[in-house]
Write a protein that binds this DNA or RNA. Structure first.
Lengths: 345, 345
DNA sequence: TCGCGTTAGTGACGCGTGTTACCTCACGCG
DNA sequence: CGCGTGAGGTAACACGCGTCACTAACGCGA
């Protein structure tokens, strides 16, 4: 195994520029208040460029600097596969948002309510955390927060004193339900994406409720059911609603994956979609367009979400003020299932 | 912001055990050939335990040790969303496989044929790489390989001198096609998952061919078409096959996502599934069971794949011999679409 | 000439670890 | 008694960087 050549160090740069190592450090880190002449500065920069100099992250960290490491904490149980469909996209966005400043992403799957998060911060060396997929009852968060440790929640956790970046779940749900109303539907059922422990489930339900209230429609609890992120639970939910006997002509399902189960249940019960029952989902998973009929849904900008989360975390780390909540807009994608009839693509 | 208490260092351990720092290092790293009495060893270990001592990774790295960092290189274009459905699971497995030895996973999305991989190795400080989703024409790989840099490919790249961990794509495809034959189908079409640049596309096609040859059935090129990892391309593929006019009574689609498009095309053409045309897919995505009819498919053990890849990389890093290819078994999941009729779950 | 402030830099230390070379005993043996 | 020898350990350096305290040169007014 041929030894790879040694990387140039700041001493090499200093030698080449004919200055001290200290000066190199000052120039490269743009140290405020440092007295460096323009000529010297340029010599240093040129030398660094010529040598292809890159500061050694470990050495920098050891000397009291940042780690250049940010952890993406995946706080999910294996069943939440639906939300993970976008993981790759989100990571791409994150990588772009953080990579510019030389940050790298380490990924740490930690089951919900596993106390390992404190440990992560203490023992691993991190500059910040992006926490994905939190729940209302998430523990171990407060401790970190009042340490002042930089955290950004991807997803929402209202009330927690942590900046969060999320899609505007409530507005998205709202737009979907309003769309169903606009199609002339009057009795609109609701199937949640997950248990109400999950913030994202509550927020989407809020959107549904607001839309009903706005349009002066009756909120009927017998038309509401929970699910558990997967299609099977959607099937159970719609079966339950059907069994209650309350008539309805539309269902807003707060997750495309769950909607698969809902549609299956409706078809099995002899209801036609969208003629008898219009459907709108949420997420715009890649397969949504290939359901029969194609699913009207709310698009979630996964890439942008990652990008925004990354940038926000950078701001927090740098001590800049950040908004408590960043809400990215969703986009209603109208397809056949809501009866608006654009047909298959 | 209250300063977090300093972590204990090896000097603290040494002081508490009444020995020198060197001795602590020898004991903790089990230095071969070091002369340490049993009593001293135990004192050191006890002190380390009491203090909750953890070696500082950056310092260790700086002193010439390993980085304890492994990069998961996602070498995919955004369109390959299908395969990414399993990313979270794979990462969980990886994390478990590597975490035991204190390794952490940094994630680096790098588009195919982007030369950035060399840079990654030179400039970032890594102990190894797990390369996910390679293609036949992947560049920048050879350079790394004959550096002797530890790499494990997750996915297959036959011919490349790199250990790989993958599901047995060929055997999986083979089992699916044999199953279709066992259902009495005689003219079986094939829709690939992706372009033949991708190793995984070729391997699955191989399985199809072998199964046909074994059962003495005719391989007919007019019954074969490529796709591009998404449902839309599946639709195009089946439309093309239909347009050729060659009769067929089954289709093996090398990806569940693509199969969605294929089924859509068949239904649009008035063919009934599975009565007129039986279908089998590959991957067992969570929604496969909720297609109408439920999709017969080949299950991919995503978690185990990550686990195996992680372990293999550890072996490579440690200089142990590893098999050139590790192939994990798949499992045929029989549902309604292949005409074997177990019905919806 | 002296005193003083400003500009443009530098020398040396510390971060926590691995490691090499060395040191000090006690002991056995000729 | 002299001397090797091995067991059990230690002092000190290197890794690459950030940073504090300090200085050399220079200008300028008195």
């Amino acid at each position: 195994m041929p030894k790879r050549p040694r990387m140039p160090t700041s001493a090499d740069v200093a030698a080449r520029a004919g200055v001290s190592r200290t000066t190199v450090s000052f120039v490269l880190n743009r140290r405020p208040g440092a007295q460096i002449s323009q000529a010297t500065r340029e010599r240093v920069l040129a030398a660094a460029r010529d040598l292809g100099y890159r500061p050694h992250p470990a050495a920098r960290h050891l000397a009291g600097g940042p780690t250049s490491l940010v952890s993406l904490v995946l706080r999910r149980t294996p069943d939440q596969v639906g939300g993970d469909a976008f993981l790759a996209e989100t990571v791409r966005g994150l990588s772009l948002g953080l990579g510019a400043d030389g940050y790298r992403i380490v990924i740490d799957p930690i089951a919900p309510n596993d106390g390992a998060m404190r440990d992560l911060v203490r023992t691993q060396h991190l500059d910040g955390i992006i926490l994905s997929g939190p729940r209302f009852d998430d523990v171990g968060l407060e401790g970190l927060v009042d340490d002042g440790f930089p955290i950004v929640v991807q997803g929402s956790l209202p009330g927690a004193p942590v900046p969060s970046v999320d899609v505007d779940n409530t507005a998205g749900a709202h737009s979907a339900v309003r769309h169903l109303v606009a199609q002339g539907r009057r009795r609109i059922a609701f199937v949640a994406n997950g248990p109400m422990d999950y913030t994202v489930a509550r927020l989407r339900r809020d959107g549904y409720r607001i839309a009903l209230a706005e349009t002066g429609m009756l909120a009927d609890d017998t038309l509401v059911a929970d699910a558990a992120f997967d299609a099977a639970s959607g099937r159970r939910a719609i079966d339950e609603i059907l069994s209650r006997g309350t008539p309805f002509d539309a269902v807003f399902v707060a997750s495309d994956v769950v909607a698969f189960g809902v549609i299956g249940g409706l078809v099995a019960a002899g209801r036609r979609v969208p003629d008898d029952v219009a459907i709108a989902g949420f997420d715009d998973i890649p397969l949504a367009a290939y359901l029969d009929p194609p699913l009207t849904t709310v698009r979630v900008p996964a890439f942008d979400l990652g990008l925004a989360a990354g940038r926000t975390l950078l701001d927090v780390i740098a001590g800049r003020r950040v908004p408590a909540r960043t809400l990215l807009p969703t986009e209603l994608i109208v397809r056949g299932s809501s009866g608006a009839g654009t047909g298959p693509p």
